[in-house]
């Protein structure tokens, strides 16, 4: 976390047991104000459990967490107006229209109903506002979920697998929306299966495996730390050569090719977040 910024989420030795199953095993991290934080992991790694506890919908077995400075157990009611969540499931009232949905939640949060139309415009659903939600496409429903989660202008927005099942265009629109929220200073807590998405959106990511955080840093640092330090060089004879950047002999070879003007392209092989995850968790997502 950037030390100059106020922590919006703090998690200290958080543990959650469901009977004999240890869903979370003493995780600790913090999320700064305005940061986009990604929690990555397999199904059952404990991502949704973490969100459930941070949003006050489940009690930790032990440990402590705060959101916006309030304890998630003792001060749950104070947290509710300050946060919101885009659920993994498209849990919408299918018989209501898009506008009715947002007006209902505006009433619940005690904000003016005009906020509904602002949000419909923000997510590009103004034209479909009068249609029942059951007639919406999956992408439209996801945008409505985002709009619903923004009704109360949350200081911390939790996104639980927000692009799962979306077509590439809808997923890109959603990612653009998250970037817009980051620019506006909203703290975003994201769980996702998609490593590219985490790489593109997150300031920092944490890898969760079997209830434990196995790595936490910026995507770049993680890739540098766990990725390969190598490059693929394409020469004028159309042959590809892999050179290790930390090997003096390879460095000499590369320098020779460059001196002779034989290099057509060089591609660094810094690795992806997926490579990092495989290195840490032993299997891909």
């Amino acid at each position: 976390m950037d030390g100059s910024r106020t922590p919006m989420v703090t998690v200290e030795h958080l543990t959650k047991h469901y009977g004999a199953v240890r869903a979370l095993d003493g995780i600790s991290f913090s999320v700064a104000e305005g940061e986009v934080f990604g929690l990555l992991g397999h199904n059952g790694a404990g991502k949704t459990t973490t969100i459930r506890m941070l949003t006050g919908r489940a009690r930790p077995t032990s440990g402590r967490a705060t959101v916006a400075g309030y304890d998630v157990v003792a001060e749950r009611d104070k947290i509710k107006p300050l946060i919101n969540l885009v659920f993994e499931d498209q849990n919408l009232y299918e018989r209501l229209t898009g506008r009715e949905t947002l007006r209902f939640f505006a009433d619940l949060y005690g904000v003016p109903r005009a906020r509904a139309d602002e949000l419909l415009a923000l997510v590009g659903l103004t034209e479909a506002a009068g249609r029942k939600v059951k007639t919406y496409s999956s992408g439209m429903k996801q945008r409505l979920l985002i709009a619903r989660a923004l009704v109360n202008q949350p200081r911390v927005l939790f996104l639980d697998e927000p692009t799962r099942g979306l077509d590439p265009t809808s997923a890109r629109e959603l990612r653009n929306l998250v970037k817009q929220l980051r620019r506006q200073g909203t703290t975003v807590f994201l769980t996702t299966h998609y490593m590219e998405e985490a790489d593109e959106l997150c300031d920092r990511v944490a890898f969760l495996s079997q209830g434990k955080i196995v790595a936490l840093d910026t995507p770049r640092e993680l890739k540098l730390r766990y990725g390969q330090r190598s490059a693929v060089v394409l020469l004028d004879d159309r042959c590809e050569h892999t050179v290790r950047l930390d090997d003096p002999a390879d460095a000499e070879r590369l320098a020779g090719w460059m001196r002779d003007g034989r290099v057509l392209t060089i591609h660094s092989q810094e690795g992806t977040l997926e490579d990092v995850f495989i290195a840490l968790a032993g299997r891909p997502l």
């Binding site: 919908r57 509710k80 849990n91 619940l108």
Partner: peptide
């Protein structure tokens, strides 16, 4: 069933 209850208890 539709998990809309989860959305409601985010505020109520």
């Amino acid at each position: 069933e539709k998990k809309t209850l989860d959305a409601l208890v985010m505020v109520a």
